[in-house]
Design a protein around this nucleic acid. Structure first.
Lengths: 113, 113
DNA sequence: AGAAATACTCACATAATTGTTATTACTTCA
DNA sequence: TGAAGTAATAACAATTATGTGAGTATTTCT
């Protein structure tokens, strides 16, 4: 499938958003960054135990390129790299919250009946 | 990766929600169903032009099993099958809306600077 | 008679994701 | 002295996820 141009996405903000956030782990990363603020690489791995190192690297790189998160590296040993949300990234909190809220309702609706 | 039990998901509504909604096409399907109400299979294909028949079948089946959408088949020729959101499915509208809203902000933040 | 319409299903092919193990370089702690 | 800690990167195999192209059955329309 051909990658769409920005112009095409601009016509559909929902499409643009999903293109930026799609993938198995993006929402999970955003969830923990919103919750914890700033995290080092290793902390992210611990916060999302099921993700592989490779995938975490990939997803972080993607989100950084898309300007959703910010990477800050310190010249220390052992190395220290901190990840946090950009301003536009922080504005994802209503998205994450609404998903979390829906999850609660959904859990209730499943345990009823 | 081992599939988690419902009990494990219940501890984290966000996790439960994402497990239900993950995959490349779920949000797109929910988006059009929220917008259009009820759609036949072929209408869904037309509304989401990039999806393959196979994936649409799979995702619809998954969402039906998870009680998020409802499938209604009529004994006609040519066949008619209508898909719509369940009650809990309809309650996803804040999720879809917040994603759409974020997409707008994001598009603005990209065209600035 | 033949084409069009629908809601799939099937077999096969490619792409995405994961698991595993190893490596780097330097400092702190035991 | 030697292990632990960090943030990756790399190579390989294995497993999932997704895509492609074709086909089915039956009625209506041309």
């Amino acid at each position: 499938m051909r990658e769409k141009t920005l112009e095409e996405y601009l016509g559909c903000p929902f499409h643009l958003a999903m293109n930026t956030l799609e993938g198995k782990w993006k929402f999970a990363i955003l969830y923990v960054l919103l919750d914890k603020g700033t995290l080092r690489f290793k902390d992210l791995e611990r916060a999302i135990p099921d993700i592989s190192t490779r995938m975490l690297v990939k997803e972080l790189k993607h989100l950084e390129e898309k300007k959703v998160i910010v990477r800050k590296a310190y010249a220390e040993v052992p190395p220290r790299v901190e990840y946090s949300l950009s301003e536009i990234g922080k504005s994802l909190s209503p998205v994450i919250d609404s998903i979390s809220d829906w999850g609660k309702s959904y859990a209730n609706s499943l345990s009823e009946k």
